[in-house]
Write a protein that binds this DNA or RNA. Structure first.
Lengths: 234, 234
DNA sequence: ACCTGAACACCGTTCAAGT
DNA sequence: ACCTGAACACCGTTCAAGT
């Protein structure tokens, strides 16, 4: 379906205007609210999935929900609030189940890969998350709770848990960007002769023929962090 | 000097208009070019230093250089090019000198802290750097060359050097964001009761009374990476 | 309370005209 | 080649008016 209007199952609109185009709602408060946070979040995710973050404008978001842009401001204070809604939705998709069933090392490993994979598709959210007070993001907070409990159970000293999670998260966020980098990011071009060590290192990596170089770097760093942090347990 | 107009020593303008306000340049090609990349970069840095990245608009940049906004496009293709100029300027500020004089561990440590500190003040550049082909950024490439040479000399297997640097960089970029996070980022607020492990971990860290919690996390992660990567040397 | 519609104060970028 | 000045196609956000 190429250009059919986005339709949410929860919003059934009677359509009294048989003329072509969308049915017009006249001004004034509607009998039942047209918008809610869940619908706004779903529409934003649909838009992002179709056109990326460049396509996520307040105008486009409003259009996809068949309302005027200003209507959104009855439900969110700013576009940043919309990004926050999306972020918290995605946080719930991060797989933390291994903390309940597996040893600490493999639980951290699965969580980290899942976390990176989810946000690699949503790097424009990273500046938002990195500075996000957890109070504003219940699902994100729930993820932290599960992970913290896993660290505690594994014998991590309490005063180091937050720092360890923050360090892992920093690595994960940076690595999420790395996934999106173009394949030729390290081609030194005509500067190759003046950068023999780096150019050699790049060629040596390329010769390995890895399908996804970003995964090699992520694995290398993650395993080092797991070993290093694992030694803190008692 | 509170509000004096920015003046580059290389640009001396005769001022034939004695009336108040800036001297107007009439349309047409000036005898000598008013703009160049170095001047644009310097002006951008001045603007960022004064008003942050929100203050860095093409219009403001042009105004600070006493030209029309469209004049900038004779020298850069887009605003992204301006950010790239700034990024490459900053890359030259990262301290890589230790690679010539100190053991690998302390050289990596100094480089990583310096790198994080420089870009913590410039986090809006991180999405740009992370996807930046090194060909477009000679100073950045020079940094990679020095670091790669340091890794090679320290006995790092050639095919692992790039992955190790990328992993360190990912950690550094994520940690740069962390520096800018508000102090109360982890206050769970009224959700505290439902998140006992996390809330406990946050309080336990707070009880340590560290001035800069971001530095604790960075140190913890960096040392783990140094130990882990150090083991790859032969 | 929650919508519409018009308006505001910006953005980055393009392009003809001028020298 | 490298400026000016006007214009374009957007942005996010505000606010009076309507029900």
């Amino acid at each position: 379906m190429p250009a059919s209007p986005a339709k949410s199952p929860s919003i059934k609109e009677h359509d009294p205007a048989p003329k072509t185009g969308a049915s017009r709602r006249r001004a004034g408060r509607p009998a039942a609210a047209v918008l809610d946070l869940a619908g706004i979040t779903a529409a934003a995710l649909r838009l992002i999935g179709k056109n990326g973050y460049d396509g996520l404008t307040m105008a486009a978001l409003a259009r996809s929900l068949h309302v005027a842009p200003s209507a959104l401001y009855n439900h969110v204070e700013s576009k940043r609030d919309v990004l926050l809604l999306v972020e918290d939705h995605l946080a719930a998709l991060v797989d933390v189940t291994a903390f309940a069933a597996e040893p600490w090392e493999s639980a951290v490993r699965k969580w980290a890969w899942s976390y990176r994979d989810v946000f690699a598709e949503h790097t424009p959210l990273i500046p938002v998350i990195a500075v996000l007070p957890v109070t504003d993001a219940p699902q994100t907070l729930a993820m932290y709770e599960t992970v913290s409990a896993g660290f505690r159970t594994a014998g991590f000293p309490a005063e180091r848990i937050v720092s360890a999670i923050v360090a892992l998260e920093s690595f994960i966020f940076g690595s999420a960007y790395d996934v999106t980098a173009p394949a030729d990011i390290f081609e030194s071009g005509r500067m190759a002769e003046s950068t023999p060590s780096f150019t050699g290192a790049v060629r040596s990596l390329a010769a390995q023929g890895h399908e996804k170089p970003a995964d090699e770097a992520f694995s290398l760093g993650l395993e080092a962090l797991i070993v290093g942090f694992g030694a803190l347990r008692k």
